[in-house]
Amino acid sequence: MNDPAIIAHRGFAGVAPENTLGAMEAAAALEETGMLELDVQPAADGTPVVFHDDRLEGRRDGRPMTDETGLIWETPLESIQSAQVLGTDQTVPTLEAVLAAVPASVGVNVELKNPGTSTLFPGQSIDDETLTQQRSKWDPFVERVLEDCDEFDGEVLFSSFCEAAIASLHRKAPHYAVGTLVWDDLEAGLEIARRYDCAAIHPPRNAILGVDMVTTAYAGLDGSEPAIDILEIAHEEGRTVNVWTVETWCQFEALRAAGVDGIIAEYPGLGSWASSSYSRVRP
Rank of each mutant, 00 (worst) to 15 (best):
M1R: 14
F161D: 01
E187Y: 15
P226T: 02
I7K: 01
N2T: 11
R205M: 11
W73R: 08
G22R: 14
E25V: 13
E111G: 08
D45R: 08
R194E: 14
H202K: 05
A265P: 02
I208W: 03
P17A: 04
D127R: 10
L255N: 08
P226M: 03
D3F: 06
Q84T: 13
S159K: 02
L36K: 05
S277M: 09
V102D: 00
P174Y: 00
L86A: 04
V92D: 05
I126G: 00
T88K: 05
T248Q: 05
R144G: 13
R59V: 12
A207C: 03
L99T: 02
A43M: 12
A5K: 10
L157V: 07
A43Y: 09
R10L: 07
W249Q: 11
A200K: 07
D39I: 14
G271N: 04
A234E: 05
S160C: 04
L270V: 02
L186G: 02
E266N: 11
I166C: 05
R195M: 10
L38D: 07
T216L: 11
N2Y: 15
D222T: 09
Q90H: 07
S118I: 14
I166D: 03
G14C: 12
H9T: 07
P17F: 03
L221N: 00
R60T: 10
P93V: 06
A227M: 09
T132W: 15
I166L: 08
G46A: 13
V15L: 11
